[in-house]
Computed example of a mutant assay.
Amino acid sequence: MVRLVGMAVGLVVVFVLAWGFLVPRDAVEPDPIKQLHKHPREVSFAHSGVFGTFDRAQLQRGFQIYKEVCSGCHGMYHLHYRDLQKIGFSPEEVKAIAAEYEVPAIDPNTGEAITRPALPTDKFYRPFPNETAARAANNNAYPPDLSLIVKARPNGEAYVYSLLTGYGEEPPAGFEVPEGLNYNPYFHSVNIAMVQPLMDDQVQYADGTPATLDQMAKDVTAFLRWASEPELEVRRRTGVAALIFLAILSGLAYISYRKVWAGVKH
């Protein structure tokens, strides 16, 4: 009896597998969002490649874009103001930049909550005290922290650059953009809550560089790349030095091997 039941179950399984293999599947309609979504465009920077280094002037321009345009909604919670010295700002300039912001503090005399000018040792100013407040001010969209945004997204630099410059493209005929959203084919759902953040001549660069949309997008992308990995140049130099050392060591080891075994006959 058990054997018959086992055979029956096996036949049922074989029948189901054969049915699934032979019967054609229903045609699956392509996802219109996936058809509209575009892969990031290629973009190169001074720091691209193994021997690339950050352009300090570009990083300072990128910080200016973040400060004047992005910081109203996006925070950079992993950076301190003192970190700006690494991109060429003097200690006095860093103090002046930090002092433009008020940060929470405690009055040492009364113990009451107060605010004070930020110091170079403070972290970057938070535009919103918490996520709830951020969503309330942005149509329920939560502006992400930009400290690690380049490393948090696939093809990070190309993605950020393409996203910032992708607002000019019009949606195809028949595609309706939901109210309160904006069409951007480089965003994963092609509909993004953030309005176009950059436009030509939106800022005035101190070094006289023309503030075109493309230039500003590259500058702030480079700054965000540095922010996500400030030690990039040190790591690259260390890696190249280690490879050179290993190459020399391998050559010396091979020469020693040939010398030690030179008189030994096989």
Results as ranks from 00 to 15, higher is better:
F128E: 08
V14F: 12
E93L: 02
L198R: 03
V203W: 03
D219K: 03
Y142V: 03
E157W: 01
A136R: 14
M216Q: 10
A105C: 08
F245Y: 13
F187Q: 03
G72D: 01
P117L: 00
F187K: 01
R135P: 04
L232V: 00
Y66I: 01
E229R: 11
S90V: 08
S147G: 07
N184Q: 07
A152S: 13
L148Y: 06
R56L: 15
G72C: 00
E176A: 15
C70E: 03
G75C: 04
A253D: 00
Y257M: 08
R61F: 02
Y254E: 10
T209E: 12
I244D: 12
I192V: 15
L84C: 05
V260Y: 14
N130W: 03
Q35I: 07
F45T: 08
R258G: 02
V203N: 02
H74Q: 06
A253L: 12
V264D: 05
N109T: 07
F15V: 13
A193L: 06
N130H: 08
E231N: 14
Y66L: 03
A217I: 02
T165S: 11
G62K: 02
G166N: 05
S90M: 09
T53R: 15
E131V: 01
F21K: 10
T121D: 14
K86L: 13
S48N: 13
G166H: 02
R236F: 07
Y101D: 08
R41K: 15
L198H: 01
Y77A: 12
G251F: 06
A98R: 04
N155Y: 14
V103F: 10
A262W: 12
H266D: 12
R153F: 02
E42L: 09
A46D: 14
E42Q: 11
S162N: 07
A99E: 12
G88A: 10
A247N: 04
M194N: 02
D201A: 12
G6W: 05
V12Q: 03
P172Q: 13
P108W: 12
M1P: 09
D207S: 07
R236P: 05
E68Y: 05
R82M: 10
